[in-house]
C-alpha cells in the first residue's frame, strides 16, 4: 500500500495515478462521511489496510488553529490519526507540494 499526503490541490491525485494501481482518493472526505453517519472507522481503516495493491490519498488537515466547532476538531483528529496508521503500514509514503512528490518513507 502506498500512502500519499499533502495540502489540497497540490497534485496528489495525478501523482497517485502514476503507480497504475487502484486509487482511493480524498480519504479525508470519506472520513467525514463515516463520522457523520456514525460508521465504525476502525473497521473501515482495517479494510483499507487489508488491500495490498492500492494507493491511498488523504489531505493533510492539521496545520492550522484548533477549530471552534467540536465536529471539526474531531474530524481533524481522526484524519490525522488515520494518516499515522496508514503511513505506519504503508510500504511507501509521499508528501506532495506544488506537484512535487517527496518520499518520506
Amino acid at each position: 500500500m502506498i500512502f500519499i499526503t499533502g495540502g489540497k490541490y497540490q497534485g496528489k491525485t495525478e501523482f497517485a495515478k502514476t503507480f497504475g494501481l487502484e486509487v482511493v482518493d480524498n480519504l479525508e472526505e470519506q472520513i467525514k462521511q463515516w463520522l457523520q453517519n456514525d460508521i465504525n472507522i476502525d473497521i473501515e481503516v482495517n479494510q483499507l489496510l487489508s488491500k495490498k495493491d492500492i494507493v491511498i490519498v488523504c489531505d493533510e488537515v492539521g496545520c492550522g488553529i484548533v477549530p471552534i466547532e467540536k465536529s471539526e476538531r474531531i474530524y481533524r483528529e481522526v484524519v490525522g490519526r488515520t494518516a499515522c496508521i496508514l503511513a505506519k503500514h504503508a510500504s511507501a509514503v509521499y508528501k506532495v507540494d506544488c506537484a512535487i512528490a517527496r518520499r518520506l518513507k
Partner: peptide, 10 residues
C-alpha cells in the same frame, strides 16, 4: 531538539 508537526501528526 525541537519537534514540530500538525495536530494529530504523531
Amino acid at each position: 531538539i525541537l519537534v514540530i508537526g500538525a495536530s494529530a501528526s504523531g
